[in-house]
Design a protein around this nucleic acid. Structure first.
Length: 254
DNA sequence: ATGGCGCGCGCAGCGCGA
């Protein structure tokens, strides 16, 4: 089973990319972020036509998450019961016995801003919720756009980014606190090329220069990490015409 | 040189992302 996460930056604009990538990647489950669609406009039919079921939690203009799967989606949960929030940033479902969560972490805008405080509070509440969930769910995957580069090696220019949004110590500590729940970064379970990133700014030819960050992640509970066979970032869709600024990331399970 | 690109909204130009 292959599970992926992809911030598509508007599913309306990127539906053709998603359909193409579903076919070429062989993914069984894709966790989407930034769909930017109200639920009434979600392309369930287009996905069903190529063999995928889908559930979504969306809103107008901003945010929006979804799960797309070849297998049935059970016990669907939108949002964090520990953090009532108008912003649609979390959706969970059980797929083949695995609890899969698509998460769009807040960006935070700037260290010290109101949005930064919201980001840290949101992650702390996610941590609380997951701690409770992991008590009863052995196999869990937290997938999505974390808006955190966990370590300096996940940043093209760690000196320039030091202490900045996406790289600040409190954000990285919040990421490590998720790992401390017993989750493991699927990407780092395997050898990877240096300077592997999942997001590149649209400006300044960042992708061509590989000036990116690794901020999209798949965290696996230990029983699931034991099943991991490979994990990668697929940068190829970033080369397509009108791409998302994020690349899909994936893990395969034995 | 704090802009630079791309999106939604909505029809000009702004807020936002990361």
């Amino acid at each position: 089973m292959k599970i992926a996460a992809w911030n598509v930056n508007s599913l309306k604009v990127r539906l053709a990319h998603l359909l193409a990538w579903l076919e070429e990647s062989g993914a069984d489950v894709v966790c989407l972020q930034e769909t930017k669609l109200e639920d009434a406009n979600f392309p369930h039919a287009e996905l069903a036509a190529v063999g995928f079921q889908s559930v979504c939690g969306g809103q107008k203009t901003y945010n929006g998450v979804a799960l797309v799967s070849r297998y049935p989606l059970e016990d669907v949960q939108i949002g964090n019961p520990r953090f009532p929030d108008a912003q649609k940033r979390l959706i969970a479902a059980t797929i083949n016995g695995i609890r899969v969560i698509s998460a769009y972490f807040p960006n935070g805008q700037a260290v010290g801003s109101d949005k930064y405080a919201y980001k840290l509070a949101w992650i702390a509440a996610l941590n609380t919720w997951l701690r409770e969930d992991l008590a009863t769910r052995r196999e869990l995957a937290l997938c999505g756009d974390f808006n955190i580069a966990p370590e300096d090696r996940d940043v093209h220019d760690p000196v320039a980014w030091a202490g900045q949004i996406l790289c600040s110590d409190p954000e990285r500590a919040a990421f490590r606190a998720l790992l401390a729940l017993g989750l493991q970064d699927a990407f780092r379970l395997f050898p990877q090329a240096e300077k592997s990133f999942s997001w590149w700014d649209y400006r300044m030819a960042s992708f061509q220069k590989n000036r990116g960050l690794r901020i999209d992640h798949i965290l696996l509970s230990s029983p699931l990490a034991n099943r991991a066979a490979a994990a990668r970032i697929d940068a190829s869709p970033r080369k397509w015409e009108r791409p998302s600024d994020h690349a899909p990331v994936w893990v395969t399970l034995k």
